[in-house]
Design a protein around this nucleic acid. Structure first.
Lengths: 320, 320
DNA sequence: TCCCCTTATTGTCAGATCGAATATAAGCGG
DNA sequence: CCGCTTATATTCGATCTGACAATAAGGGGA
């Protein structure tokens, strides 16, 4: 890279030795039987990751390498999420620079799992307040008063009002609608209000309540980032199909979307939408496994991958 | 970062010394008089940038520092764009790892410019095919046949069909609509087809045609990434106001959006949309500078910044 | 065999949204 | 006072969306 401004040159010499460690880190998602699953290693509290190394041809191939090595799972669809600097994240004092580049990956579980050290967990184990498919989850009954306490605890009345509003918007309090895309905002709010374990780390503070399984470092935050991105993306790009088997019924497709979105969808409307956008085509076969009338099997029309960039894909979400 | 998988530990030791240079790079945008402008340094072919250094408290503050130092321009709104590894970008052979983290920044020009080495240029000087406000730009008359040649030049018939379709979608050929958000796809297509200068670099190949001012390294690509992001974002977040003065007429607001989107908007519909979303409020004053009936002045309702996350902001774009 | 239960598939309807076009208002200058 | 310019307000029809109802096609048990 060139930095041609004169002022820059000088400065650059002064900091020349600055280099940083670069880590690649993956949020790998699959869905089976209406459950959105996350691929973890270690004690189910760590995302697959590893340093970006000399032998890697690119960031993406480095990431694929690490995930495959640590979990035995080859990756298909990959998308960059966000880049963090450790100081942003941990507030560490050490004079060492570390950067993490996070990715979202979508796959199917089918492939032979492999290295016993890894496993799949529902992502709602980590963020239980995110699943609204069967109504408002019970954790929110616990969290809501705590959030109010936290808001009211601010000395400045302006801060107080602002906190109350942020919480109400993020969690859909007082008559507001639940917005499933605000996953990251919700995580950050819970972090700020010290209602999750990570918030107390390094400060000898016990968490106020235990809600959801915590993860190493800021991995749970990265998961929240990935969920937010995915929930927003399924609405305008046909990425769900990365998670489906080659052929599927429309209800299976709907359940998958619902698993990701964490809320229910109106069935006839979902069907109408998928059909009128010509996202799928019939295979000609039917599935008898439904318990009722046999369902037609469909497959994804790969042609849309080309021109769907133009159209945009929306979702008919059902009201609460 | 912890990498607890056992296989990882070993591997990690082997590559331990791997560190990388990290660069911060900014696409700084302002709009004046219906012109979307980009802040450049050097020969108007370089984006402000500099290495992420020890003294920087965070990635963002590092970026602010470099931009202010190189251009004298303080930044307001900032958003991360994408992280590139140099090998992805240049295909360099050297065994040195460099990473670039790019950001999009929105400001107003007002602030004292400063260090003579920098300046503002319309971003359409770099990507002239992106401005469709006065109909299809003339460059496309030149580019279109070249793109066809390139597509037809593929030996494999499948590749040929695929190229033709990609070009048609990206540029809106044969009766397709122009989609202003596909800026990056268009840049990549022109790069692949060697219709812009960057494509020939390091290969002693003269560019087939000269369309738009080129930039250093992959800076023009980063600009394209920024434009694409911004064009998509103005549709669901009220970021335009970062570019407006404290008070403005609705037509000024519309012209700003049009400058960014590169296409025209239906006036009554734009007004209706802005009003019904309560994005603005009247200041009570009027502007006589319009030449006709005086226009009411408005200001941004900062309150919406809080809850607009929920609603989403759409744009009524006019048909071709 | 018929009834009932389950799920699939199709259809309807009202309200909201959106693009397009039209009508009216308020300045200025001749 | 007329005619020009631009601002502002209204209307209309097509489309989209959410909600709901109706019908179809399997299996299982009485």
């Amino acid at each position: 890279m060139n930095h041609q401004a004169k002022g820059t040159r000088k400065r650059r010499a002064a900091v020349k030795a600055d280099e940083a460690k670069v880590d690649l880190i993956a949020v790998v998602v699959a869905v089976t039987d209406s459950d959105p699953c996350l691929l973890t290693i270690g004690n189910a509290d760590t995302l697959p990751s590893g340093p970006y190394a000399l032998e890697h041809r690119s960031l993406q191939s480095g990431l694929r390498g690490w995930v495959e090595q640590q979990t035995g799972h080859p990756l298909g669809y990959i998308e960059q999420l966000y880049t963090f600097a450790d100081r942003d994240r941990i507030g560490a004092e050490r004079q060492e620079r570390a950067i993490s580049i996070s990715y979202l990956a979508l796959t199917r579980k089918e492939q032979a799992a492999g290295s016993g050290n890894c496993g799949w967990r529902s992502w709602y184990e980590y963020l239980p307040w995110e699943d609204h498919r069967s109504g408002t989850p019970v954790v929110l009954d616990i969290l809501r008063p705590r959030l109010s306490e936290w808001a009211e605890g601010a000395s400045d009345p302006t801060t107080r009002r602002e906190r109350l509003q942020r919480a109400a918007i993020a969690f859909g309090f007082d008559h507001r609608n639940w917005n499933e895309e605000l996953t990251l905002q919700r995580y950050e709010l819970l972090y700020e209000s010290a209602l999750i374990e990570e918030a107390g780390r390094g400060r000898d503070v016990a968490p106020a309540v235990t809600s959801g399984k915590a993860m190493i470092a800021d991995h749970r935050r990265i998961l929240a980032t990935g969920i937010a991105r995915l929930r927003s993306k399924i609405k305008y790009r046909p990425v769900v199909f990365e998670l489906m088997r080659p052929s599927f019924t429309l209800l299976q497709l709907q359940r998958t979307v619902e698993a990701l979105a964490g809320r229910l969808i109106n069935k006839p409307n979902f069907r109408r939408l998928v059909e009128q956008q010509e996202l799928v085509e019939e295979t000609g076969e039917t599935s008898l496994e439904t318990g009722g009338r046999p369902a037609k099997l469909y497959r994804f029309r790969h042609a849309v991958l080309d021109d769907r960039a133009v159209a945009g894909t929306k979702l008919p979400l059902a009201r609460a």
